[in-house]
Design a protein around this nucleic acid. Structure first.
Length: 379
RNA sequence: GGACAGGUGCCCGAGCGGUUAAAGGGGACGGACUGUAAAUCCGUUGGCUUUGCCUACGUUGGUUCAAAUCCAACCCUGUCCA
Protein backbone atom coordinates (compact mmCIF):
# COMPACT_ATOMS: atom_id res chain seq x y z
CA UNK A 1 0.00 0.00 0.00
CA UNK A 2 1.42 3.36 -1.04
CA UNK A 3 1.18 5.98 1.67
CA UNK A 4 -0.59 9.23 0.81
CA UNK A 5 1.68 11.85 -0.75
CA UNK A 6 1.27 14.26 2.12
CA UNK A 7 2.74 11.87 4.66
CA UNK A 8 6.24 11.15 5.80
CA UNK A 9 6.63 7.39 5.61
CA UNK A 10 9.27 4.69 5.56
CA UNK A 11 8.91 1.38 3.81
CA UNK A 12 11.33 -1.51 3.90
CA UNK A 13 11.88 -3.37 0.64
CA UNK A 14 14.59 -5.92 1.25
CA UNK A 15 17.32 -6.92 3.64
CA UNK A 16 20.67 -8.67 3.54
CA UNK A 17 21.75 -9.56 7.03
CA UNK A 18 21.04 -6.44 9.08
CA UNK A 19 21.42 -4.21 6.01
CA UNK A 20 18.20 -2.79 4.61
CA UNK A 21 16.93 -1.22 1.41
CA UNK A 22 13.87 0.95 1.60
CA UNK A 23 12.25 4.24 0.74
CA UNK A 24 11.34 7.34 2.66
CA UNK A 25 8.38 9.13 1.20
CA UNK A 26 8.08 12.87 1.65
CA UNK A 27 5.82 15.40 -0.07
CA UNK A 28 8.87 16.65 -1.94
CA UNK A 29 10.02 13.29 -3.21
CA UNK A 30 11.17 9.79 -2.44
CA UNK A 31 14.48 9.01 -0.79
CA UNK A 32 15.99 5.65 -1.66
CA UNK A 33 17.78 4.17 1.33
CA UNK A 34 20.48 3.60 2.33
CA UNK A 35 20.88 7.24 1.35
CA UNK A 36 23.75 9.65 1.40
CA UNK A 37 22.81 13.29 1.91
CA UNK A 38 25.34 15.87 0.68
CA UNK A 39 25.87 18.65 3.20
CA UNK A 40 24.72 22.11 2.24
CA UNK A 41 25.29 23.94 5.51
CA UNK A 42 24.87 27.53 4.40
CA UNK A 43 22.23 26.98 1.74
CA UNK A 44 24.69 25.53 -0.76
CA UNK A 45 26.47 22.27 -1.28
CA UNK A 46 29.78 24.08 -1.50
CA UNK A 47 31.13 24.53 -5.02
CA UNK A 48 28.20 22.74 -6.68
CA UNK A 49 25.07 23.82 -8.50
CA UNK A 50 21.86 22.25 -7.21
CA UNK A 51 21.41 20.67 -10.64
CA UNK A 52 24.75 18.90 -10.28
CA UNK A 53 23.81 17.57 -6.86
CA UNK A 54 20.56 16.27 -8.29
CA UNK A 55 22.06 14.74 -11.42
CA UNK A 56 24.74 13.09 -9.30
CA UNK A 57 21.88 11.12 -7.80
CA UNK A 58 21.22 12.81 -4.45
CA UNK A 59 17.60 12.59 -3.31
CA UNK A 60 17.99 14.92 -0.32
CA UNK A 61 20.49 17.34 1.12
CA UNK A 62 21.28 18.99 4.43
CA UNK A 63 20.95 22.51 5.69
CA UNK A 64 22.02 23.94 9.03
CA UNK A 65 19.97 25.76 11.64
CA UNK A 66 22.81 27.63 13.33
CA UNK A 67 24.49 28.88 10.17
CA UNK A 68 21.30 29.91 8.36
CA UNK A 69 19.96 31.53 11.54
CA UNK A 70 22.99 33.81 11.68
CA UNK A 71 23.12 34.51 7.97
CA UNK A 72 20.90 35.32 6.19
CA UNK A 73 18.43 34.65 9.04
CA UNK A 74 15.56 32.19 9.28
CA UNK A 75 12.83 34.84 9.15
CA UNK A 76 14.38 36.34 6.02
CA UNK A 77 14.50 32.96 4.29
CA UNK A 78 10.87 32.42 5.27
CA UNK A 79 9.91 35.77 3.73
CA UNK A 80 11.71 34.73 0.56
CA UNK A 81 9.65 31.58 0.27
CA UNK A 82 11.61 29.10 2.36
CA UNK A 83 14.95 27.37 1.91
CA UNK A 84 13.91 25.21 -1.06
CA UNK A 85 12.87 28.22 -3.13
CA UNK A 86 15.76 30.34 -1.85
CA UNK A 87 18.45 27.87 -2.91
CA UNK A 88 16.57 26.36 -5.87
CA UNK A 89 16.45 22.79 -4.57
CA UNK A 90 13.01 21.26 -4.88
CA UNK A 91 13.83 17.89 -3.32
CA UNK A 92 13.65 17.10 0.38
CA UNK A 93 15.91 18.94 2.81
CA UNK A 94 17.01 17.77 6.24
CA UNK A 95 18.24 20.40 8.66
CA UNK A 96 20.55 19.82 11.55
CA UNK A 97 19.44 21.50 14.74
CA UNK A 98 22.65 23.20 15.83
CA UNK A 99 23.58 20.28 18.06
CA UNK A 100 26.79 19.70 16.15
CA UNK A 101 27.81 23.33 16.65
CA UNK A 102 27.54 22.69 20.41
CA UNK A 103 30.69 20.64 19.87
CA UNK A 104 32.38 22.27 16.90
CA UNK A 105 31.92 25.78 18.31
CA UNK A 106 32.32 24.78 21.94
CA UNK A 107 34.52 27.78 22.68
CA UNK A 108 31.77 30.14 21.48
CA UNK A 109 28.76 28.87 23.41
CA UNK A 110 27.33 28.35 26.87
CA UNK A 111 25.02 25.49 27.80
CA UNK A 112 22.13 25.53 30.21
CA UNK A 113 19.01 23.48 30.77
CA UNK A 114 17.13 26.06 28.71
CA UNK A 115 19.32 25.73 25.65
CA UNK A 116 22.52 26.91 24.02
CA UNK A 117 23.73 30.49 23.89
CA UNK A 118 26.02 30.99 20.95
CA UNK A 119 28.32 33.89 20.38
CA UNK A 120 28.23 34.37 16.61
CA UNK A 121 31.47 33.34 14.93
CA UNK A 122 30.69 36.04 12.35
CA UNK A 123 30.14 39.19 14.42
CA UNK A 124 30.22 38.13 18.07
CA UNK A 125 26.53 38.80 18.69
CA UNK A 126 24.64 36.60 21.13
CA UNK A 127 21.99 34.10 19.99
CA UNK A 128 19.98 31.88 22.28
CA UNK A 129 18.88 28.59 20.76
CA UNK A 130 16.42 26.59 22.82
CA UNK A 131 14.99 23.30 21.57
CA UNK A 132 11.81 25.23 20.74
CA UNK A 133 13.66 27.96 18.85
CA UNK A 134 15.67 25.38 16.90
CA UNK A 135 12.45 23.75 15.72
CA UNK A 136 10.93 27.14 14.97
CA UNK A 137 13.92 27.99 12.77
CA UNK A 138 13.73 24.64 11.00
CA UNK A 139 10.02 25.27 10.36
CA UNK A 140 10.76 28.75 9.04
CA UNK A 141 13.31 27.21 6.69
CA UNK A 142 10.69 24.66 5.68
CA UNK A 143 12.84 21.61 6.35
CA UNK A 144 11.18 18.33 5.43
CA UNK A 145 13.14 16.39 8.01
CA UNK A 146 14.06 18.24 11.17
CA UNK A 147 16.33 17.24 14.00
CA UNK A 148 15.83 17.69 17.71
CA UNK A 149 18.31 19.96 19.45
CA UNK A 150 20.88 17.74 21.16
CA UNK A 151 24.23 17.99 22.83
CA UNK A 152 26.97 16.40 20.77
CA UNK A 153 30.12 15.76 22.80
CA UNK A 154 33.65 15.03 21.75
CA UNK A 155 35.09 11.56 22.45
CA UNK A 156 36.70 10.19 24.45
CA UNK A 157 34.60 11.53 27.30
CA UNK A 158 34.02 10.42 30.88
CA UNK A 159 30.95 8.33 31.64
CA UNK A 160 29.59 11.21 33.73
CA UNK A 161 29.93 13.59 30.82
CA UNK A 162 28.28 11.12 28.44
CA UNK A 163 25.36 10.58 30.85
CA UNK A 164 24.88 14.30 31.31
CA UNK A 165 24.79 15.02 27.57
CA UNK A 166 22.61 12.01 26.85
CA UNK A 167 20.04 12.89 29.51
CA UNK A 168 19.94 16.55 28.51
CA UNK A 169 19.45 15.47 24.89
CA UNK A 170 16.50 13.30 25.98
CA UNK A 171 14.84 16.18 27.82
CA UNK A 172 15.44 18.37 24.78
CA UNK A 173 13.95 15.64 22.56
CA UNK A 174 10.70 15.90 24.54
CA UNK A 175 10.64 19.65 24.21
CA UNK A 176 11.59 19.51 20.52
CA UNK A 177 8.79 17.04 19.88
CA UNK A 178 6.21 19.23 21.62
CA UNK A 179 7.39 22.25 19.63
CA UNK A 180 7.29 20.29 16.40
CA UNK A 181 3.79 18.99 17.16
CA UNK A 182 2.75 22.64 17.38
CA UNK A 183 4.66 24.08 14.45
CA UNK A 184 5.47 21.25 12.04
CA UNK A 185 3.50 20.92 8.80
CA UNK A 186 1.90 17.75 7.44
CA UNK A 187 4.47 15.62 5.68
CA UNK A 188 7.36 17.01 7.71
CA UNK A 189 9.07 14.87 10.33
CA UNK A 190 11.27 15.44 13.34
CA UNK A 191 13.80 12.84 14.34
CA UNK A 192 15.26 12.12 17.76
CA UNK A 193 18.98 11.66 18.32
CA UNK A 194 20.52 8.84 20.34
CA UNK A 195 23.50 9.92 22.43
CA UNK A 196 25.58 8.13 25.08
CA UNK A 197 29.17 8.11 23.92
CA UNK A 198 30.63 4.65 23.43
CA UNK A 199 28.85 3.20 26.48
CA UNK A 200 26.38 0.61 25.21
CA UNK A 201 24.23 0.78 28.34
CA UNK A 202 23.85 4.54 27.86
CA UNK A 203 23.12 4.08 24.17
CA UNK A 204 20.44 1.56 25.05
CA UNK A 205 18.82 3.85 27.61
CA UNK A 206 18.89 6.74 25.16
CA UNK A 207 17.42 4.66 22.33
CA UNK A 208 14.68 3.15 24.44
CA UNK A 209 13.61 6.51 25.81
CA UNK A 210 13.41 7.98 22.31
CA UNK A 211 11.54 4.96 20.96
CA UNK A 212 9.01 5.41 23.76
CA UNK A 213 8.32 8.86 22.27
CA UNK A 214 7.24 7.21 19.01
CA UNK A 215 9.13 9.45 16.64
CA UNK A 216 9.07 8.99 12.82
CA UNK A 217 12.76 8.08 12.77
CA UNK A 218 15.87 7.89 14.91
CA UNK A 219 19.32 9.28 14.45
CA UNK A 220 22.52 8.06 16.03
CA UNK A 221 24.58 11.08 16.98
CA UNK A 222 27.84 11.65 18.74
CA UNK A 223 29.84 9.21 16.65
CA UNK A 224 32.88 9.74 14.43
CA UNK A 225 33.96 12.38 16.91
CA UNK A 226 37.28 10.90 18.04
CA UNK A 227 36.50 7.32 19.05
CA UNK A 228 37.92 5.67 15.92
CA UNK A 229 36.37 3.40 13.31
CA UNK A 230 36.23 0.15 15.28
CA UNK A 231 34.66 1.66 18.39
CA UNK A 232 32.22 3.55 16.24
CA UNK A 233 31.06 0.39 14.50
CA UNK A 234 30.84 -1.50 17.80
CA UNK A 235 28.81 1.29 19.38
CA UNK A 236 26.57 1.43 16.36
CA UNK A 237 25.89 -2.30 16.47
CA UNK A 238 24.91 -1.98 20.12
CA UNK A 239 22.59 0.93 19.32
CA UNK A 240 20.63 -0.06 16.21
CA UNK A 241 19.68 -3.21 18.13
CA UNK A 242 17.28 -1.07 20.15
CA UNK A 243 15.80 0.89 17.27
CA UNK A 244 12.57 -0.31 15.63
CA UNK A 245 12.88 -1.93 12.22
CA UNK A 246 9.99 0.02 10.73
CA UNK A 247 11.53 3.47 11.21
CA UNK A 248 14.47 5.01 9.34
CA UNK A 249 17.81 5.18 11.12
CA UNK A 250 20.21 8.00 10.45
CA UNK A 251 23.89 7.97 11.39
CA UNK A 252 24.81 11.62 11.66
CA UNK A 253 27.98 13.03 10.13
CA UNK A 254 29.39 9.78 8.75
CA UNK A 255 31.59 9.31 6.91
CA UNK A 256 34.23 7.57 4.87
CA UNK A 257 33.12 5.02 2.28
CA UNK A 258 34.16 2.20 4.59
CA UNK A 259 32.38 3.77 7.59
CA UNK A 260 29.24 3.89 5.50
CA UNK A 261 29.52 0.30 4.27
CA UNK A 262 30.02 -0.99 7.80
CA UNK A 263 27.22 1.15 9.20
CA UNK A 264 24.80 -0.09 6.55
CA UNK A 265 25.71 -3.60 7.67
CA UNK A 266 24.51 -2.57 11.15
CA UNK A 267 21.16 -1.39 9.86
CA UNK A 268 21.68 2.30 9.12
CA UNK A 269 19.56 3.90 6.39
CA UNK A 270 20.75 7.50 6.12
CA UNK A 271 24.08 9.31 6.16
CA UNK A 272 25.46 12.77 5.73
CA UNK A 273 29.03 13.97 5.69
CA UNK A 274 31.12 16.91 4.53
CA UNK A 275 33.81 14.53 3.37
CA UNK A 276 33.03 14.36 -0.36
CA UNK A 277 32.79 18.13 -0.68
CA UNK A 278 35.48 19.22 1.76
CA UNK A 279 37.97 16.62 0.58
CA UNK A 280 37.13 17.53 -2.98
CA UNK A 281 37.91 21.18 -2.32
CA UNK A 282 41.17 20.07 -0.78
CA UNK A 283 42.24 17.94 -3.73
CA UNK A 284 41.26 14.44 -2.68
CA UNK A 285 39.09 12.29 -4.94
CA UNK A 286 37.23 9.14 -3.96
CA UNK A 287 37.12 6.36 -6.54
CA UNK A 288 36.43 2.64 -6.60
CA UNK A 289 40.19 2.18 -6.76
CA UNK A 290 40.76 4.15 -3.56
CA UNK A 291 41.52 7.70 -2.57
CA UNK A 292 43.52 9.86 -4.98
CA UNK A 293 45.27 13.04 -3.88
CA UNK A 294 45.31 15.07 -7.07
CA UNK A 295 47.90 17.45 -5.64
CA UNK A 296 50.54 14.72 -5.74
CA UNK A 297 53.24 15.15 -8.38
CA UNK A 298 52.64 11.71 -9.83
CA UNK A 299 49.48 12.94 -11.56
CA UNK A 300 51.14 15.84 -13.37
CA UNK A 301 51.23 14.07 -16.74
CA UNK A 302 48.58 11.42 -16.30
CA UNK A 303 46.09 11.74 -19.17
CA UNK A 304 43.62 9.27 -17.62
CA UNK A 305 40.37 10.48 -16.03
CA UNK A 306 39.55 9.61 -12.42
CA UNK A 307 37.13 6.93 -13.60
CA UNK A 308 36.45 6.33 -17.28
CA UNK A 309 33.28 4.43 -16.39
CA UNK A 310 31.73 7.09 -14.21
CA UNK A 311 28.49 8.73 -15.24
CA UNK A 312 29.79 12.00 -13.78
CA UNK A 313 31.48 14.27 -16.34
CA UNK A 314 33.95 15.50 -13.73
CA UNK A 315 35.24 11.99 -13.09
CA UNK A 316 34.95 10.78 -16.68
CA UNK A 317 35.95 13.62 -19.00
CA UNK A 318 38.81 15.50 -17.35
CA UNK A 319 42.37 14.20 -17.15
CA UNK A 320 44.11 13.72 -13.83
CA UNK A 321 46.85 15.94 -15.23
CA UNK A 322 44.35 18.77 -15.69
CA UNK A 323 42.80 18.25 -12.25
CA UNK A 324 46.32 18.25 -10.80
CA UNK A 325 47.09 21.50 -12.59
CA UNK A 326 43.87 23.13 -11.36
CA UNK A 327 44.52 22.12 -7.74
CA UNK A 328 48.16 23.21 -7.83
CA UNK A 329 47.13 26.52 -9.34
CA UNK A 330 44.44 27.13 -6.75
CA UNK A 331 41.84 27.41 -9.48
CA UNK A 332 38.25 27.18 -8.25
CA UNK A 333 37.33 24.81 -11.06
CA UNK A 334 39.54 22.16 -9.44
CA UNK A 335 37.50 22.25 -6.24
CA UNK A 336 34.29 22.31 -8.23
CA UNK A 337 35.16 19.31 -10.39
CA UNK A 338 36.45 17.22 -7.48
CA UNK A 339 33.44 18.06 -5.30
CA UNK A 340 31.21 17.04 -8.17
CA UNK A 341 33.10 13.81 -8.81
CA UNK A 342 33.06 12.95 -5.09
CA UNK A 343 29.37 13.64 -4.56
CA UNK A 344 28.70 11.48 -7.63
CA UNK A 345 30.99 8.75 -6.31
CA UNK A 346 29.19 8.72 -2.95
CA UNK A 347 25.87 8.40 -4.76
CA UNK A 348 27.28 5.60 -6.94
CA UNK A 349 28.48 3.88 -3.78
CA UNK A 350 25.01 4.11 -2.23
CA UNK A 351 23.41 2.77 -5.42
CA UNK A 352 25.84 -0.15 -5.45
CA UNK A 353 25.12 -0.80 -1.77
CA UNK A 354 21.37 -0.82 -2.42
CA UNK A 355 21.84 -3.19 -5.35
CA UNK A 356 23.96 -5.60 -3.31
CA UNK A 357 21.39 -5.64 -0.51
CA UNK A 358 18.53 -6.15 -2.93
CA UNK A 359 20.41 -9.10 -4.39
CA UNK A 360 21.18 -10.33 -0.87
CA UNK A 361 24.94 -10.35 -1.31
CA UNK A 362 25.86 -7.47 0.94
CA UNK A 363 28.47 -9.31 3.04
CA UNK A 364 30.31 -10.30 -0.14
CA UNK A 365 30.04 -6.74 -1.42
CA UNK A 366 31.87 -5.45 1.64
CA UNK A 367 34.59 -8.06 1.30
CA UNK A 368 35.01 -7.18 -2.37
CA UNK A 369 35.42 -3.44 -1.86
CA UNK A 370 36.57 -2.77 1.69
CA UNK A 371 40.32 -2.95 1.18
CA UNK A 372 40.37 -0.80 -1.93
CA UNK A 373 38.08 1.89 -0.57
CA UNK A 374 39.89 2.17 2.76
CA UNK A 375 43.22 3.25 1.34
CA UNK A 376 44.98 5.31 -1.27
CA UNK A 377 44.77 4.16 -4.86
CA UNK A 378 47.65 1.92 -5.82
CA UNK A 379 49.39 3.69 -8.72
C1' G B 1 81.99 58.93 -17.84
C1' G B 2 79.70 60.46 -12.83
C1' A B 3 76.25 59.89 -8.37
C1' C B 4 73.45 56.97 -5.49
C1' A B 5 71.04 52.11 -4.31
C1' G B 6 71.79 47.02 -4.28
C1' G B 7 73.78 41.66 -5.01
C1' U B 8 71.34 36.42 1.03
C1' G B 9 69.11 29.41 0.50
C1' C B 10 64.73 26.99 -5.77
C1' C B 11 62.43 32.43 -5.99
C1' C B 12 61.23 37.03 -3.27
C1' G B 13 62.99 38.98 1.11
C1' A B 14 64.62 40.12 6.64
C1' G B 15 69.14 40.22 9.12
C1' C B 16 73.98 44.47 9.48
C1' G B 17 80.09 41.56 14.55
C1' G B 18 79.02 36.03 18.35
C1' U B 19 72.27 33.40 20.64
C1' U B 20 72.46 32.28 12.08
C1' A B 21 72.08 26.47 8.23
C1' A B 22 70.08 32.23 8.33
C1' A B 23 63.08 35.46 10.26
C1' G B 24 58.88 35.87 6.98
C1' G B 25 56.50 34.94 2.34
C1' G B 26 56.15 32.11 -2.22
C1' G B 27 57.23 27.66 -4.74
C1' A B 28 58.15 22.45 -4.35
C1' C B 29 57.24 17.71 -1.79
C1' G B 30 54.09 15.03 1.56
C1' G B 31 50.06 14.46 5.18
C1' A B 32 45.30 15.50 7.48
C1' C B 33 40.08 16.42 6.73
C1' U B 34 33.61 12.41 9.28
C1' G B 35 25.59 16.22 11.78
C1' U B 36 31.32 22.43 7.49
C1' A B 37 34.13 29.04 11.81
C1' A B 38 37.92 24.66 6.59
C1' A B 39 38.78 26.59 -1.64
C1' U B 40 41.48 25.01 5.14
C1' C B 41 45.13 23.23 8.45
C1' C B 42 49.88 20.62 9.60
C1' G B 43 54.80 18.85 8.42
C1' U B 44 59.45 18.76 5.34
C1' U B 45 62.51 21.75 2.12
C1' G B 46 72.01 22.43 1.67
C1' G B 47 75.03 17.79 2.44
C1' C B 48 77.00 13.86 5.47
C1' U B 49 79.72 8.65 8.58
C1' U B 50 73.74 13.42 12.21
C1' U B 51 74.13 14.47 20.65
C1' G B 52 78.68 16.05 15.65
C1' C B 53 80.99 17.68 11.19
C1' C B 54 81.31 19.95 6.28
C1' U B 55 79.63 23.56 2.76
C1' A B 56 76.85 28.33 2.26
C1' C B 57 74.91 35.00 2.21
C1' G B 58 78.35 38.14 -5.89
C1' U B 59 84.19 37.21 -6.34
C1' U B 60 88.95 37.70 -4.20
C1' G B 61 91.77 39.45 -0.32
C1' G B 62 91.93 41.69 4.57
C1' U B 63 90.52 43.29 9.95
C1' U B 64 88.91 40.28 14.29
C1' C B 65 89.27 35.25 19.25
C1' A B 66 84.73 35.43 15.99
C1' A B 67 82.26 38.11 9.53
C1' A B 68 76.08 37.34 5.78
C1' U B 69 77.21 41.49 9.02
C1' C B 70 83.44 45.83 9.19
C1' C B 71 87.44 47.32 5.24
C1' A B 72 89.63 47.12 0.06
C1' A B 73 89.62 45.83 -4.96
C1' C B 74 87.02 43.64 -8.69
C1' C B 75 82.52 41.67 -11.26
C1' C B 76 77.43 42.27 -11.99
C1' U B 77 72.22 44.77 -11.44
C1' G B 78 68.95 48.86 -11.04
C1' U B 79 67.74 54.33 -10.79
C1' C B 80 69.24 59.16 -11.82
C1' C B 81 72.81 62.86 -14.01
C1' A B 82 75.97 64.09 -18.30
Amino acid sequence: MTPPKSKFAFSLHSTSGAARVGEITTPRGIISTPAFMPVGTAGTVKALYPDQVKSAGADILLGNTYHLMLRPGAERIARLGGLHTFMRWDGPILTDSGGFQVMSLSSLRKMSEKGVTFQSHIDGSTHHVSPERSIEIQCLLGADIQMQLDECIELPASRERAIEAMELSLRWAERSKRAFDDMGKPGQAMLGIVQGGTDLELRRRSAEALVAMDLPGYAVGGLAVGEGHDLMVATLAGTTLFLPADKPRYLMGVGTPVDIMEAVARGIDMFDCVMPTRSGRHGQAFTWGGKINLKNARHAEDPRPLDANSSCPAARDYSRAYLHHLMKSGEHLGSMLLSWANVAFYQDLMAAIRKAITEDRYAAFIVAHRARLSGAEVP
